[in-house]
């Protein structure tokens, strides 16, 4: 392949592990996003906080009762997605890695998702799944962003790429069982992805992943958003209703505009 040594190394790491974790490509964009959440949370709570942002977010469970968590989360998601600059800033966090792993002509999910997982709360769990099992195209990747340091059960888990083949072979045996049994079958093979604020992860959403009850004393805040090369096949998540082209290049614009001389088509 005609890639630079650096791009080749990143691609190899992604293929072998199923993910890469790197420093964010734009620290100002990251701070803009986290400051946005702090402001939204302060507004929802009706008071300013004098805590450092990471302490405020890590301990938000001490200020929001569990029964109000869903409304609080929806308010945060709607608030941050209402900001015009959100998606561009989110893209900037991983632009260089997306260029290398996916391409530089991208479609991006229209809405960026947010996960808030309180300590010991079982209402925010994502059972083991691969996004492709619910309609995503295998040509997509997920850019996953922690807004606080994520470690232990506060993190997410992923079945590494080199463990996928046996899972694939054994899956027929699990038909008719539950997602919990699927998780149990890979529990000792999944990798818990420790990742700090200031880092970003790109992962292969075709690999089984999810979270469990957060047994750490802090709340997890993380975001996720899907990207794909704009002209690769789409799954059930279509252009327009789910994805939007964000970096169309001149050659594609010329191609889309082209008409044979004198024919108009």
């Amino acid at each position: 392949m005609f890639m630079t040594v650096e791009d080749q190394a990143l691609n190899t790491e992604f293929l072998e592990q199923g993910y890469v974790i790197r420093p964010v490509a734009d620290q100002a964009a990251l701070d803009w996003i986290r400051d946005g959440f702090v402001a939204l949370a302060e507004e929802a709570l009706g008071r300013k906080s004098d805590l450092p942002p990471e302490v405020f977010l890590n301990h938000i469970h001490e200020q929001v009762p569990v029964p109000q968590l869903n409304d609080f989360r929806l308010r945060m998601i709607r608030g941050i997605n209402a900001a015009d600059a959100l998606r561009e800033n989110y893209y900037k966090l991983a632009r260089t890695y997306l260029d290398a792993l996916v391409g530089n002509e991208l479609a991006m999910q229209l809405r960026v998702n947010l996960s808030i997982q309180f300590p010991d709360d079982d209402s925010s769990l994502l059972p083991v799944h691969a996004d492709t099992w619910s309609g995503d195209s295998p040509y997509e990747v997920v850019v996953w962003l922690p807004l606080v340091n994520c470690y232990g059960s506060k993190a997410m888990y992923l079945l590494p790429a080199n463990e996928y083949a046996p899972f694939d072979r054994d899956f027929v045996r699990l038909q008719g069982s539950s997602s919990e049994e699927v998780y149990k079958s890979i529990e000792n093979k999944v990798k818990w992805l420790e990742i700090d604020y200031g880092q970003v992860m790109v992962f292969n959403q075709s690999l089984p992943h999810g979270n469990r009850i957060n047994a750490e004393p802090e709340t997890r805040w993380s975001m996720n958003c899907r990207f794909k090369s704009v002209f690769t096949p789409y799954g059930d998540k279509k252009l327009g209703e789910f994805f939007e082209p964000i970096t169309l290049r001149a050659a594609s614009r010329l191609g889309m505009d082209y008409r044979y001389p004198g024919t108009g088509k």
């Binding site: 002209f231 252009l239 889309m256 505009d257």
Partner: peptide, 8 residues
């Protein structure tokens, strides 16, 4: 853009 990409 969305329309033209969809058509392409």
């Amino acid at each position: 853009d969305m329309w033209r990409v969809k058509q392409a």
